[in-house]
Nucleic acid binder design. Structure first.
Lengths: 239, 239
DNA sequence: CTGACGGGTTGATCTCAATCAAGGACAACA
DNA sequence: TGTTGTCCTTGATTGAGATCAACCCGTCAG
């Protein structure tokens, strides 16, 4: 696990012009508070594949994603893996009230994060109801997404799973201003499989089927939704 | 949808000797605050099968479960159902920041709840960081449970699903002081199936298998874990 | 240029859980 | 007492997705 602090060579990126501000918890803070929070945070970078923290380890920091994608996953003893989600810029990682990390997180491509020591962040938050409110809200959105994912895992077919995943991913990206014609998929097929409760072969076959049916077009870096309404219908479960 | 307010005939149950206090959000409040909160809450009761609120309806209240069990579920247009969880005494229902109910909730057996108008609760909470902190914590625990359930849905066999469910249910009950030799299962087989991403037949068969193998003994009202270590091993995924 | 490797695709076969179908246990009720 | 309905169980068969296996393609090292 390599941590590299953005050091001397790099410009200090002030929170003020942070690209993830607006989606992140920081949105709940005023200028002064922002500076105070910046004081106790530091910017860290992880290269592709690096582990940011591991399941069951003691959590000493919270993180706010600044740039890049992370996969958040849980492992069973026999190494079956479930990716419980992908974290994007603005997402907050870490749960006050739980001493240990509840899942592992590693970088999908290069990632930068704001790191906050748990203790000082908690102290900082304690007297700022609007920050706590924001955290309740973020947790609520996360919970809603988790529930939606349970429906996917428990009750949808492979084709619906893939379509739902693509639509959900598109909507999340556009929510943070990263919408576009081509939908980038930085994660590997195996990651998608472990996220959707499928095998890599089924994911591959299903992508092929959707392409054959003219719903998507696949590229090395992602897909284009040729027939978004059809994908949305599949995603909604209106087979 | 029948709502019956506990009325004249019934004793007013003060929050002070509420059996769910201690697990519920109220635990974060002192005596004075508790009385204030009681002021803006009312006790409501639902008979078995009654719907407390429905998915996509506008949320006007928050609830704290006082007694009984609720099933929380999402429906697909074609009526496939995923039960995202069961709520027990002390659980908080409703997410600040989302205008609509994100799932439906109905009573499994008779249920009583504390109902708080959303607005007045929000106003009350706004100035009480320790209450907000408690809500963040509760949301965090809920999220952790949701993640664990994703592993179950995405990566476990039918037998492991049932074993995990039983162990998880036992632990939750004992966490609220309802542990005991016999593990009550107030929900129906169909509920369990829709919670675990199985069919009712597979649930039934798997219970039968576990009973044949001497892991459990089934009764009308629940099960006894004859071989808890074996069930725990299955639950952990150490097949 | 060649071989090894990682990531992805495709085909053949198998298996676990779904589906289809029947019947049992039990409570509510006429 | 028989009738009806709900819930649960069990058996037979099917099928979606897993597994096993082969192969393609681009990249990188030697």
């Amino acid at each position: 696990m390599k941590i590299s602090v953005l050091g001397e060579g790099m410009h200090f990126r002030s929170c003020h012009d942070c690209t993830a501000r607006g989606f992140a918890i920081c949105a709940a803070l005023d200028k002064t508070e922002l500076r105070e929070l910046a004081q106790l945070s530091r910017h860290v970078r992880f290269e592709s594949g690096a582990t940011v923290f591991a399941q069951a380890n003691i959590a000493t920091s919270f993180f706010s994603v600044h740039a890049g994608t992370l996969r958040l996953y849980k492992l069973l003893p026999d190494s079956r893996r479930q990716i419980v989600g992908f974290a994007l810029p603005g997402d907050f990682l870490g749960l006050p009230g739980l001493p240990h990390h509840e899942f592992s997180a590693d970088a999908v491509g290069r990632v930068t994060l704001c790191q906050f020591p748990k203790e000082s962040f908690a102290t900082f938050a304690e007297k700022r109801p609007q920050l706590l409110r924001r955290m309740v809200e973020l947790a609520g959105h996360e919970l809603a997404r988790a529930h939606e994912h349970m429906v996917l895992l428990g009750r949808r077919s492979a084709e619906e799973k893939i379509a739902s995943f693509l639509i959900g991913w598109r909507d999340r990206l556009s929510g943070i201003g990263r919408g576009g014609e081509i939908l980038p998929l930085p994660m590997k097929r195996l990651d998608i499989a472990d996220h959707l409760g499928l095998t890599i072969e089924t994911v591959s076959r299903t992508f092929s089927k959707l392409e054959r049916d003219g719903v998507i077009q696949t590229f090395a870096s992602g897909v284009v939704l040729l027939d978004a309404p059809r994908a949305e219908a599949l995603s909604a479960g209106v087979s």
